[in-house]
Simulated assay, not measured.
Amino acid sequence: MTIRFQEAMRLMRARDPQDREDGFHFLLPHAAEHVDRLIAEFTEERTDHGLRCWLLELIGHARSANALPILTEQLHADDDSLRFWAVRGLEQLDTKPARYELWKARANGLAL
């Protein structure tokens, strides 16, 4: 894990809203480099809903095939915010499997 990633995650967990924003935007252009760690952080985070949304947004922004399982899982989440970022992530991934998951969800009546 790089110092950049550690520092960004520390900032994203800070109490100060500006620090949180800074951490997110610091990591945004490097999301693809850290997609596996972002997925691990998302999976481990259980209490901070805003952080989970940001992590899922970063995971989608990475445009990595490694993100397909977590994005697909969150596509069917009860949480509308997480589902929103899962849809956006799958749209950004724009692979045949990602498009299939979106099609399947819509075909099964999931409002996206």
Rank of each mutant, 00 (worst) to 15 (best):
C53Y: 03
L28W: 07
W103N: 10
A105T: 05
T72A: 15
N108I: 02
W85M: 10
G23S: 01
R63L: 08
R10V: 00
E44C: 14
L112I: 02
W103Y: 14
I39A: 01
S81M: 07
D19A: 13
W85P: 04
R63I: 01
N108Y: 09
N66D: 08
E91M: 11
W54K: 15
T72P: 06
F26S: 04
H30M: 09
V35Y: 03
F26I: 04
A67H: 05
C53P: 02
D79N: 13
F84E: 09
E7D: 10
R99L: 13
Q74E: 12
A107K: 15
R13L: 10
D16N: 13
L82D: 05
L102W: 00
A62Y: 13
T72V: 04
H61Y: 14
T47F: 07
E21C: 11
A40Q: 14
G50R: 12
A105N: 13
R52K: 08
H34V: 03
P97Q: 04
R15L: 13
A8H: 11
F84W: 14
I70P: 01
L90A: 02
R106T: 03
W85L: 13
L110N: 04
P29Q: 13
R99S: 03
H25Y: 15
L58T: 03
H61D: 12
L11E: 12
A111S: 12
G109Q: 03
E45A: 00
L68A: 04
A65K: 10
L27N: 01
D19E: 15
